[in-house]
């Protein structure tokens, strides 16, 4: 059996939190609207990789640059990252699959992060993250079925004095309660606030 088939058939995201979406180009994701073509994704990844700010280009730096641009890593981005640093696609996948901040399917339209670090835990993170998951119809981390919200747990958002902490479309918010989180989430989701 050649190396290609011996690796099983599932996409890494299938075993993890992400739901919905296709591995190649994210064609089927409801959030994607008119899905960009593979060629388009490749071009955007290539440009982001070429224009990354650091002087030192590695597989990891290129993967991060591509994810910053596309918000996930389609196959084309992995291939471009590998080529940028003279690595094989397998090596690039090995790196991408190690760091949990990479995702392999397009994210939902909005991102919500809840800190579950020790300070936030002590000050009540669990009721917030469990309540939010319930509110969104999820059983924990993951994307809502309508593609509107990606819920992610963060190990420490770095603002522990303002615990319990969250972020909404990458905007930090401190001293949260479940009620405040739900109402801010709904404002973000209805487009009133956030990116």
């Amino acid at each position: 059996m050649s190396g290609g088939e011996s690796w099983g058939a599932a996409h890494p995201a299938a075993g993890a939190a992400m739901s919905g979406g296709e591995s190649r180009g994210g064609a089927a994701h409801p959030a994607a609207g008119a899905a960009p073509s593979g060629a388009e994704l490749r071009e955007r990844a290539r440009r982001a990789i070429a224009e990354q700010p650091g002087k030192t280009v590695t597989v990891l730096s290129s993967l991060l640059a591509a994810q910053d641009e596309l918000h996930y890593l389609p196959f084309e981005a992995i291939e471009e990252a590998a080529m940028s640093a003279g690595a094989s696609v397998n090596e690039a996948w090995g790196v991408a699959s190690f760091y949990p901040n990479f995702r392999f399917t397009p994210p939902a339209r909005h991102s919500v992060e809840v800190c579950w670090g020790p300070t936030c835990h002590v000050l009540g993170a669990q009721p917030i993250l469990q309540g939010l998951a319930r509110h969104l119809g999820l059983d924990g981390e993951g994307d809502t079925e309508d593609g509107s919200v990606s819920l992610k747990f963060n190990t420490c958002l770095g603002v522990c004095p303002h615990a319990p902490a969250m972020s909404f479309d990458h905007q930090l918010a401190g001293r949260m309660s479940l009620d405040a989180a739900v109402s801010r989430l709904e404002r973000v989701r209805s487009g009133e606030q956030g990116a």
């Binding site: 690796w7 099983g8 058939a9 599932a10 075993g15 591995s23 196959f75 094989s88 696609v89 996948w93």
Partner: peptide, 12 residues
């Protein structure tokens, strides 16, 4: 859920 290389053509 399967190894990361699963959905990719292995391309040495």
């Amino acid at each position: 859920g399967g190894t990361p290389t699963a959905s990719v053509k292995v391309d040495f």
